[in-house]
């Protein structure tokens, strides 16, 4: 509705410009344009009010609070300028958060997504019981993060856990790792859980993408003599591009905001070895009552996510979002 009105308005605009001589028709057009604007505003208003109250205002308050040393009670009064931010970028734990976030993102893109893609390709074949497998692999995504966390805390329990029993059964019992309690292993164990939890979601995305690829194209490639790998590499993969790009986007944003799974399993430990930005934020905001400092963390998190989203959409997903984010150029 709003979009068509906009288009009408614009074409009207063009007409008005070309026939600038007639003042009367110009006035009528202006009136109609004003009426159109009013309609747009009227229809956008409810959403706009909610968005402002629930998204913009809290962001601005967090930004404001980040310039204060504030315990969260009463109004912030102890203005410290950029102190919270300078402290933040000297904080080993926070710098570690950034590093660990990067590691998780790279692991996700390098291992989790290709894994999801290969399963999706597999389940896109004619296969007995493939609906069952699709359901099976998607099931972990439906499970809540807390249940997943508790489940894997038990599986990776050093003494009685299933994981170590399995290792024993395949003759690797001597390794006997402590998983989440081992500082050098905890992040990778966590990644394992994340993969289990989220690959099904990406698999479904890829399956949807795969099913939208016309069979004719693949057939044509076959006729041209392309083998199955070549078909995948030169036909399927490029046509899957939009899906892969959105899946990477969701994966990165998810990794930046990762909280609940980590909180349930390790609380960021041992000794910060699995701490993420959100965990640090929670520690300072809700356990130490240093709300000003926690706000600074939230602001940095917001900026990182925001800048990433803008650049990614502008440069990587440009073709996919043509007409939405990058609409201005198309319309002009």
């Amino acid at each position: 509705m709003a979009l068509s009105t906009l288009k009408d308005g614009q074409s009207e605009d063009a007409v008005a410009e070309s026939s600038a001589g007639s003042a009367a028709s110009g006035r009528a057009t202006r009136r109609r344009r004003r009426w159109n604007r009013l309609t747009i505003i009227l229809f956008l208003l409810p959403a706009l009010v909610l968005f402002t109250l629930l998204v913009l205002v809290p962001i601005l308050i967090a930004l404001y609070a980040s310039f204060f040393r504030w315990g969260g009670f009463g109004l912030p009064s102890d203005f410290v300028g950029l102190d919270n931010f300078t402290r933040l970028f000297q904080d080993e734990v926070f710098l570690g958060d950034l590093w660990r976030g990067l590691v998780l993102i790279l692991l996700s893109i390098g291992i989790q997504l290709p894994f999801a893609l290969s399963i999706a390709v597999l389940l896109n074949q004619r296969l007995r019981g493939r609906a069952f497998y699709r359901l099976l692999f998607f099931a972990p995504y439906v499970l809540s993060e807390v249940i997943t966390g508790v489940l894997f805390t038990m599986i990776f329990s050093p003494d009685e856990g299933l994981a170590n029993h399995l290792l024993e059964m395949v003759g690797l019992g001597h390794l006997n790792p402590t998983w989440f309690a081992d500082e050098s292993l905890v992040l990778f164990t966590l990644f394992l859980v994340m993969t289990w939890k989220y690959f099904g979601f990406h698999m479904i995305l890829y399956l949807a993408g795969l099913q939208s690829i016309p069979k004719e194209v693949l057939e044509a490639a076959s006729i041209d003599g392309a083998g199955s790998w070549q078909r995948f590499r030169h036909v399927t993969l490029p046509l899957l591009g939009p899906t892969i790009r959105i899946s990477i986007f969701l994966s990165v944003i998810g990794a930046i905001q990762l909280f609940d799974l980590v909180w349930v399993i390790t609380q960021g430990g041992p000794v910060h070895a699995s701490e993420t930005m959100s965990i640090t934020l929670f520690q300072f905001g809700f356990k130490r009552y240093q709300v000003g400092y926690a706000s600074a963390i939230s602001v940095v998190m917001f900026v990182i996510s925001f800048v990433f989203a803008i650049f990614y959409q502008r440069y990587v997903m440009r073709r996919d979002t043509e007409g939405a984010v990058t609409a201005m150029r198309g319309l002009r």
């Binding site: 962001i59 601005l60 967090a62 969260g72 009463g74 706000s295």
Partner: peptide, 18 residues
């Protein structure tokens, strides 16, 4: 106003939690 502001401030940190 005070309770509103402090609640809103925390909401900025984490809406779902609150």
């Amino acid at each position: 106003r005070r309770t509103f502001l402090s609640a809103a401030g925390l909401a900025g940190l984490s809406v779902p939690l609150l």
